[in-house]
Amino acid sequence: MANPWAGEVAITLDGVAHVAKLTLGALAELEATLETGSLVDLVERFEGGRFTTRDVLALIVAGLRGGGWQGTPRDLMTVEIGGGPVEAARAAAELLARAFALPGQE
């Protein structure tokens, strides 16, 4: 379902698969919601394992919205993310990696 070559990541919410992608608009929305720092700071937090659950949630919401989902962060408070918090963090990191990967990198 998700095309990794197009920067897409599959995320399951309440048993329903969704495609997430950090489009330019989604990245702009994400940057606006970050409480501290820039997108580069966010990448560095993930690379260093210093990310927060707020970082994960912001990335998941931005990615889902980039994939066409119309929800809000509040909507994710009551859904079950397939794989739980660990899978959510992995998907968030993968979204970041795919958004900034050069063609041919993966």
Score class of each variant (00 low, 15 high):
W5D: 14
L39V: 12
V61N: 01
V86R: 15
P103I: 06
L76H: 11
A2S: 15
T12I: 14
E29K: 10
S38R: 06
G63M: 03
V19L: 06
L34M: 08
A92H: 03
G82E: 12
G104W: 02
T12N: 12
Q105L: 12
L59F: 00
A6I: 00
G83N: 12
E106K: 11
P73R: 07
S38E: 04
F46H: 05
L42W: 06
L95H: 00
G7N: 08
A88I: 07
L96Y: 02
E44Y: 08
A20L: 02
E106P: 07
A32M: 11
A28Q: 14
I60S: 07
E106D: 14
T23H: 03
G71N: 11
V43Y: 04
L13K: 09
G25R: 10
A28E: 13
R90L: 05
A6S: 15
E106G: 15
L24I: 11
R98F: 01
G48V: 03
E80V: 15
G49K: 05
E31T: 10
W69K: 01
G25C: 06
V16G: 00
W5E: 15
P73Y: 08
A32P: 09
L102E: 14
V56Q: 01
L59S: 02
L76Y: 11
G37V: 00
G15V: 03
T23K: 06
I11S: 07
E29A: 15
A10M: 14
M77S: 14
F100Y: 12
A88P: 04
T53H: 08
G49M: 03
G48M: 10
W69M: 00
V43A: 11
L64N: 03
P85W: 12
A88V: 07
G84P: 09
A89V: 01
A10N: 13
T72K: 13
I60E: 07
T36H: 13
A28C: 06
L24S: 10
L59Q: 01
V79R: 08
G67E: 05
